[in-house]
Write a protein that binds this DNA or RNA. Sequence first.
DNA 1: AGGGCTTGGTTCAAGTTTGAAACAAACCTA
DNA 2: TAGGTTTGTTTCAAACTTGAACCAAGCCCT
Lengths: 171, 171
Amino acid sequence: MTTRWLSPDEQRAWRAYIAASLLLEDAIDRQLQQDAGMPHLYYSILSVLSESPERRLRMTDLAERLKITRSRLTYAVTRLEKDGMLRREACRHDKRGSIAALTDEGFAVLERAAPGHVETVRSFLFDRLSEEQVGQLEEISAAIAQGLQEDGTRSAADDVPWRRRSSPSCS
Amino acid sequence: MTTRWLSPDEQRAWRAYIAASLLLEDAIDRQLQQDAGMPHLYYSILSVLSESPERRLRMTDLAERLKITRSRLTYAVTRLEKDGMLRREACRHDKRGSIAALTDEGFAVLERAAPGHVETVRSFLFDRLSEEQVGQLEEISAAIAQGLQEDGTRSAADDVPWRRRSSPSCS
DNA sequence: AGGGCTTGGTTCAAGTTTGAAACAAACCTA
DNA sequence: TAGGTTTGTTTCAAACTTGAACCAAGCCCT
């Protein structure tokens, strides 16, 4: 089977998407680094914790929610703990487990940074989209995420075709 | 002015978007690392070069197209040059300039990796979206990117409001 | 109970990214 | 045309990410 290259429409969409996601993450990282002294992911960790029962969550659950690897989370949590934003606690029922618990200080930092963060997200994202587009964005994102999560079994592409042609495009 | 928090719809869209973009970039990075021995950004560098006149581009232009910092590009290009994927050349007209030129080997690597890459993008993204959604994705992305590029002047948010409330949400 | 497999988490080295600082060439402008 | 500013690129240290390897602790299974 010969490769189905991207159509011009798909090309454009793909490139626009890549550019937008790079720019957006950059902008948000910069804003949070400025105002909260931490990158977006770290802020998200605090945010997820703040909404969890008792403001605490097991490492694995946290990683799962944030869609990041456990090792990445370990590093981040270590830094955040060092900064006093959260505390690690032992898990009573499962001695292997480790629980990240938001401290009052962490919560306070979150509270202080939240308005600025929301404002940024708004001005760079939602202010630019119609209500309709917000819905579309959610659906599109959900569709993508769903395909990439299929029970964790990294299935897919068991049948990648190999061919060549003159100018490989698609960045 | 009191903070305009995200509506439930916006919340969901935002979170879905974050999750999707993380998962997608991860999947693509893994695929390219596997099949081409380099992360997505590095592949994109080669790809952009391959489509440029004479398969060469000045560093600044390359950085501009890829929406990354010059310093990030310098690092990447250094690695790619070490691997023989491209060569740095002096710029005749402007002695400050440095030009990245795709080598034949680089082009060959690109050619070999392209089908697998396209297949991945297709299976994780376009196969999951309707034709309509592809169009929507492009428009949404373009709108976002546009707002973040306004002539390079990192304007925006000169009027961030500061307030607090009970549970700061929005990851 | 005694393996052996799985799960939860961390560790480590290698690779990458960031942002500020350093340099050098080009471009004014008085 | 000397001196100051801007532009193009690299450098450097610190922070972050990756993936494989490791260590326990739980979970079977006999």
